[in-house]
Design a protein around this nucleic acid. Structure first.
Lengths: 351, 351
DNA sequence: CTAGTGGTGGCAAACGTTTACAAGGCCGTG
DNA sequence: CACGGCCTTGTAAACGTTTGCCACCACTAG
């Protein structure tokens, strides 16, 4: 035994031990130790198996996943891109992913792009460098030509060498998808208001740079047209996807047209709209009804409990995980589709 | 050139390329290629540097971080344990960590323990197996003896081999800390109510299994004693850390004692308390003032905008990142400390 | 003209695994 | 008694990097 070997053998209580130490202690070859620790299908006698196991136990051996990944070309890690992890919308999705992936022992890298194309591509690159087995885009596309081209090509190469990619929101990249139909959701919400007797329905839209804003607005227009409702450019106002954006847009709307109901592109804006209404002396829903879309946590506890449509974020994550696992297994999973549900609370009344 | 080599050289547009391909294309050794790609201090002539760079570019070479980590013993990854990533409280912290770590190019593993000791230890083990450079406990301790012992010993070994550990919430593990003084925060909030003229202040507490509940309750008691306020067992009620928990506790409190103000262990419970008050015909703040603690997003937009104390979650993450970086650099960073700030909104009035 | 020096480059080992291949022992069968 | 085969184990190469050590070259100085 060289002095180097001795010092390692003695490191029992200190640093991390390798398969070599386990093998040594058990009196077998590294190969054999590997076979029992990795659950290989290669047969090992019960006696030696026990010896290895107890040696591993005594050394508190934990296999080095990096080394394993290097040879198996499977890292058991997955990269997730979100817009912003502090946004519960994405938090829920990530949670769903986590739960769905847990059984298979995958670890998640999470990165917030804050909608910056450069950041996002750099994160994607980093994921690839870390040899993730899959990357999931939880957030919808950024509409930047350079970004799209780069990520597109990166992902193609990735897929060519066996990588799996799944998108959880409207995205241009090709990969497996779980789809929430924002167009239909908004149209349904307008339909719901129509059924409650509303005939003049205003729309408070989000920033047009975001794919999801456009899709939801299109859903509103489609429903209005189909139902033959009043509409004109005065019926729609835009603002940022925030409470203050919603307030401002509500003010614009009020200045132009008379409506009995308003639907907002998301709940935050709906809450802003309510606040503006309330502070300017109008009652919700008695004077004007307000509906949102998303069903974020705040929705239930706002100034007036908000009627909205729940988008099943957690479930989106779960389904994403299923698809991902199937893809990783070499299967060709079908895209999943997920539907919303209108949550009736107090901000809409029948007329 | 063997056929194997050819097929790899040709894989230009397909799979990922290794340093060997780059070296080959540039007509240099792998060692030299490595030196330019890794920014080694070993000198390389400008000419060959350019040759390597352009070869790397043509092959879209991206170094394999796993292989690098194996030899350098630095993975550039960090494991983060939270209670629940869909909880914006933790989302904010993680965001802060992300932002603080971005410049140094670290990747984050995130895992939600959902306060399950077994899950949490298994995640910690997994992080170690993936050779993270640091682990951060964003969530406070789970009070389970077996859990504590296991994690304690795991972390000691980890630190012994150079790993960095930082805790962002009351935690028993030793490591670097960023501290938010929950005791003081609650005492300050009681003091604030006192200054507003309140002399009979009720307390709505969270589940006693959680360290943070106990600490905040202790802060309340300390302040009440120091200020010489009315108090008795009737003045405090407990419930889950949720809106419904807050409602129920509020009902209990009302049954036992008369108060002019109530402070809740967190904002969710404060909102629950307000809802109970409002639905049972009492006005907030005219009949009873309500204060919370945390300043979650909902706080501002609740039934009545909530007066509360902001705990600077994002900043906690940022500071955690700084400490972590310093520790990784071999330094001995001091613990950081972070303070709250009372946010005055509409739920408290002076009497 | 030779020896020393400094700047570049390559060889090969190492990190901790997995796994193809081969080899040894033992048993049963012919 | 010899041979084939199965069961178990070991040997060594491989994954893609980094890095210690050495070698080479061109200069410069004596």
């Amino acid at each position: 035994m060289t002095s180097k070997q001795r010092s390692q053998a003695v490191s029992d209580g200190g640093g991390s031990s390798s398969l070599r130490h386990v093998a040594q202690l058990a009196g077998v070859s590294v190969a054999t130790a590997s076979r029992v620790m990795s659950g290989s299908s290669h047969p090992v006698s019960e006696l030696t198996r026990q010896r290895v196991l107890s040696a591993a136990d005594r050394l508190a051996f934990e296999p080095n996943r990096l080394a394993r990944a290097l040879v198996t070309a499977r890292s058991q890690t997955i990269g997730v891109i979100v817009h912003d992890i502090s946004d519960p919308y994405f938090g829920d999705i990530v949670k769903g992913l986590e739960d769905g992936l847990e059984v298979e022992d995958y670890r998640l890298f999470v990165a917030s792009s804050v909608r910056d194309p450069d950041k996002e591509t750099s994160y994607v690159r980093a994921f690839l460098a870390h040899q993730v087995d899959a990357v999931v885009f939880a957030a919808s596309s950024i509409t930047d030509p350079g970004y799209i081209e780069t990520v597109q090509s990166l992902m193609r190469r990735f897929q060519a060498r066996g990588g799996v990619v799944v998108t959880l929101s409207d995205h241009v990249i090709d990969g497996h998808r779980v789809i929430f139909d924002n167009h239909q959701a908004m149209a349904d919400m307008v339909g719901y208001l129509f059924e409650r007797g509303h005939r003049s329905i205003g729309y408070i839209g989000g920033p047009s740079e975001l794919e999801v804003s456009r899709v939801r607005l299109a859903g509103y227009h489609a429903a209005v047209a189909e139902l033959g409702l009043e509409s004109g450019s005065g019926h729609v106002a835009e603002g940022g996807f925030t409470v203050t954006g919603g307030s401002a847009a509500m003010a614009d709307l009020l200045a132009n047209v008379e409506v009995t109901a308003v639907v907002a592109a998301n709940d935050l804006m709906a809450i802003g709209a309510m606040r503006h209404l309330l502070t300017s002396g109008k009652a919700v829903p008695d004077d004007i009804s307000v509906a949102g879309l998303d069903d974020i946590a705040i929705a239930e506890y706002g100034p007036v409990p908000l009627t909205t449509m729940r988008v099943p974020t957690y479930e989106i994550g779960r389904r994403g995980a299923e698809i991902l696992l199937e893809g990783l297994d070499g299967g060709e999973p079908e895209d999943a589709s997920v539907v919303g549900e209108i949550i009736e609370r107090d901000s809409v009344r029948s007329v």
